[in-house]
């Protein structure tokens, strides 16, 4: 496995993404962060913390499980459903920032947009991903990217986060074919 992002790299990327989010949305007053479980939820919480440090006010942050909205349920072993937690202020007319660890085919984000649509109507939906590895299957693009990682389809990207994996690291497994 080759290491694509070290712990300090991840920290820097998240800090930069936080600044970009604030810049794009002219502050934190209208934004809601929603992380896609499992790792996206932890990344969203980290971004929320960084933004709070910068702005001095707490930013609403929740989780959005997309399992029930996937389009490949017939083909995959049943997955445990993770919690969906929408902040009390809701998403209506807000700028929702979806946060995920790896952006790949785009199907997860499609499912997330459907899930979001069932909950309410945000003013805008933006996407932050720690890694964009390419190979999109749908017309979806990230607004904030930690690092673009050119990969081959046979490779896999592994994101480790200290909250659940004990350390921060992004690696690429497998050979370039």
């Amino acid at each position: 496995m080759s290491i694509a992002l070290s712990a300090p790299d991840i920290k820097r990327a998240l800090t930069r993404i936080s600044h970009e989010i604030l810049e794009r949305n002219q502050g934190s007053s209208s934004i809601v962060l929603l992380g896609i479980p499992t790792r996206g939820a932890h990344l969203a919480a980290r971004i929320a913390t960084i933004i709070t440090e910068i702005e001095g006010v707490a930013v609403p942050c929740g989780t959005l499980d997309i399992t029930l909205f996937r389009d490949d349920l017939r083909l995959r072993a049943p997955k445990a459903i993770m919690p969906t937690t929408i902040p009390p202020s809701g998403i209506e007319d807000k700028d929702v920032i979806l946060v995920d660890d790896v952006l790949f085919s785009g199907r997860t984000i499609r499912a997330a947009l459907d899930a979001l649509g069932e909950i309410g109507r945000p003013r805008t939906v933006q996407l932050a991903a720690l890694v964009d590895r390419g190979h999109r299957e749908l017309p979806i693009k990230a607004d904030f990217v930690g690092k673009n990682l050119p990969t081959s389809k046979s490779q896999s990207v592994r994101v480790l986060l200290s909250e659940i994996d004990g350390r921060d690291e992004v690696g690429i497994e497998g050979e370039v074919l």
């Binding site: 029930l68 349920l73 017939r74 083909l75 995959r76 072993a77 049943p78 997955k79 459903i81």
Partner: peptide, 9 residues
């Protein structure tokens, strides 16, 4: 949900 997801598998 448990019975019908992954049923094609």
């Amino acid at each position: 949900y448990v019975l019908l997801t992954g049923s094609a598998l």
